[in-house]
Design a binder for these strands. Structure first.
Lengths: 147, 147
DNA sequence: TCGATAATAGACTCCATTATCCTTTATCAA
DNA sequence: TTGATAAAGGATAATGGAGTCTATTATCGA
């Protein structure tokens, strides 16, 4: 079971981070990304499709086709990717699953969880893929070391 | 979709919090809890079963049966309930889903997410159901106001 | 001791997420 | 203009979490 994000969202984040480590403008194929990140190709295709529709990626069909970033890496925040794939409900729903959790009718951990959730949101909202590029490069590099 | 915790875990947390608001030693039936919290009875039965096996609740069969807390409310931390139902993997898995995320091979948000995750853990580890009793009472009270 | 009650336990169903497959569309290069 | 390539898109399948059902076991009260 994945925490917080759906599997598709995890894959999408990984894929965009991966693309961001490539030389600017280089078109990369779904199957290359899938192979590198060990993600099912067809499933990844669906996710990249959604990201293209949202403008986070740009796709090219045909030979010499592939994917590139849809805008400059400084303008792609992690939250944009999350929002495109999973939406924003994680930032509004009650962590205990209580219905109608709000300031008027807070759940027992409403305030404390609210703070944590806000920090998580802020992390995703102020980190762009440009900010984490170096870290992405080393993480990606570590991936296929054993296999 | 539920965030962080499984549906069963959410229900379990709600149920234990509810039981903690009742007079000490009062035995409450699954169906009463289910009705109050709007949870499917049979599903809740499964969850309370697990919590009984872990000693968080104590169950009594037969007429005059039902559930009570397995130990004093000061000794039941929220994390105990989470651990019993969902385990601890949320505190170890990579938020981006990268394999082998660790200090040696950190993912791009490893440090920042690590801090947030630790705060979440600490919240669950230092709040006992005794600590949040008053808040639980008012949240539970707010539940069936409309229906 | 017997019937009613309520939790236990395991099998089973349902559905959303995850994953796969195949056809269509667009693009490139020869 | 044609063949190869690669993404788009729709249909289908598998998996796992969520929820249901039924029989069994334990306990109480009459």
């Amino acid at each position: 079971m994945s925490i917080i994000f759906s599997k598709g969202c995890e894959y999408g984040l990984q894929a965009v981070l991966y693309i961001s480590t490539l030389e600017r403008g280089r078109r990369i194929l779904i199957k290359e990304i899938a192979a590198k990140l060990q993600i099912p190709v067809h499933f990844l295709a669906k996710i990249l499709q959604q990201l293209s529709q949202k403008g986070i990626l740009k796709s090219y069909k045909g030979s010499k086709g592939g994917f590139v970033l849809g805008r400059s890496p400084e303008e792609i925040r992690l939250i944009d990717i999350v929002n495109a794939l999973d939406g924003m409900s994680i930032f509004t729903e009650c962590i205990l699953g209580f219905p109608g959790c709000s300031t008027e009718h807070p759940c027992p951990v409403h305030d404390r969880w609210g703070k944590i959730r806000t920090e998580a949101f802020e992390m995703l909202a102020d980190e762009t893929i440009a900010d984490v590029k170096e870290k992405s490069i080393s993480k990606i590099a570590s991936l296929n070391m054993d296999s």
